[in-house]
């Protein structure tokens, strides 16, 4: 493991991701990266800054604006012994590569009865709250959760970002990795990270705050909204347990069920639209598998079933907020 990139001081979310990728590049010479403006420029946000300079143009490709070809070529590389890290300049643009992801890449292991596996990470900046409007704000993880064969990851802090990225790169399956762009350089979430190599295993949720009165399940940027709402609830005398899913597929039902045994109340929050979303899936599974522990009707707070509009009052109107989460939490606690 190369020492220079290891930080002894606090690092932000973006640096954690950048270091994870660079360390994996150094560890495994079969890893190749592809994306728009990721080489010369170092990526629109700088996640691959310096990567091409260090590892060369044979391993870091500036691609034409061709998301389908980016994913498809990466699939071919993986079919022939390489491991690919693919950047979507914004995760919104992933729709242009949709067929290559859900039909070509996601199904390859299945349709070859296990002969082929595609070790690909498709990563990109995601999420709203920053005024990015309809096409620079999306959380479209539910599209892919509905396509068997894809793992889906979304870290909320630098430690998880680094550990999950390494786990995703080492995973033999295609992984879609949602990086929350509003967290990239957020100062108040910077962390000191271990100097030694570590991973955060895929499929393991994390209890980020313990409590006894209600379980609030979320991931990504909403973790911080939920933690703020939990403080509000505390002022009202209710202690919330907050679970950060970290991985959407596979979903860690066990951690949620263990929490519900204690709290008997459930609220799920996700940034994406309501209908057929991840929050709805968590509610459905808990209704199926943990109904006996529930003392109140569970609920979800999600984006409205609208696109993400541009200007601030409109954007905030449709998204989950501390107020909306607090209100729903109180309603459930008081049931």
């Amino acid at each position: 493991m190369s020492a220079p990139t290891i930080q002894s001081t606090k690092v932000n979310y973006l640096t954690a991701l950048k270091d994870a990728i660079a360390e994996e590049f150094a560890r495994d010479k079969d890893i190749v990266a592809m994306g728009e403006d990721i080489g010369l420029l170092g990526g629109a946000f700088g996640v691959t800054d310096g990567l091409q300079e260090k590892f060369g143009k044979d391993r870091v490709y500036d691609m034409p604006i061709s998301e389908a070809a980016i994913v498809g070529v990466a699939c071919g590389l993986c079919l022939n012994g390489k491991k690919a890290i693919v950047e979507m300049q914004f995760i919104d643009f992933i729709s242009c590569g949709f067929d290559q992801i859900v039909n070509m890449t996601a199904t390859y292991h299945y349709r070859t009865a296990g002969e082929v596996n595609i070790p690909m990470v498709i990563r990109g900046p995601a999420g709203a709250y920053g005024g990015g409007a309809l096409y620079h704000s999306q959380m479209n993880e539910a599209w892919f959760a509905h396509s068997p064969g894809l793992k889906i990851v979304c870290p909320s802090n630098p430690y998880d970002a680094k550990g999950l990225m390494k786990a995703a790169i080492r995973d033999p399956n295609p992984v879609i990795f949602y990086e929350i762009k509003d967290l990239y350089r957020r100062r108040d979430i910077e962390m000191e990270l271990p100097e030694e190599d570590y991973i955060v295993p895929l499929g393991k949720a994390k209890v980020v705050k313990e409590g006894e009165d209600i379980t609030i399940v979320t991931y990504g940027q909403n973790v911080y909204h939920v933690l703020a709402a939990a403080e509000n609830l505390e002022k009202e005398g209710y202690r919330a347990e907050v679970i950060d899913l970290r991985t959407i597929v596979p979903l860690d039902e066990e951690t949620i069920i263990e929490s519900l045994k204690k709290t008997n109340r459930l609220l799920v929050v996700n940034e994406a639209p309501k209908t057929c979303g991840v929050a709805g899936e968590v509610l459905a599974r808990m209704t199926e598998n943990a109904f006996q522990y529930l003392d109140a009707p569970p609920a979800r707070i999600t984006r409205m079933d609208t696109p993400v509009p541009w200007v601030k009052p409109l954007e905030l109107y449709v998204l989950p907020s501390v107020e909306k989460i607090t209100e729903a939490g109180l309603r459930i606690c008081k049931f």
Partner: peptide, 20 residues
């Protein structure tokens, strides 16, 4: 290379395997 039903869908993979 295994095709899907989406036509031209394997040309990117063909480029990828020879790049590898």
């Amino acid at each position: 290379i295994h095709s899907t039903s989406m036509l031209a869908g394997t040309i990117p993979a063909a480029a990828g395997v020879v790049l590898a």
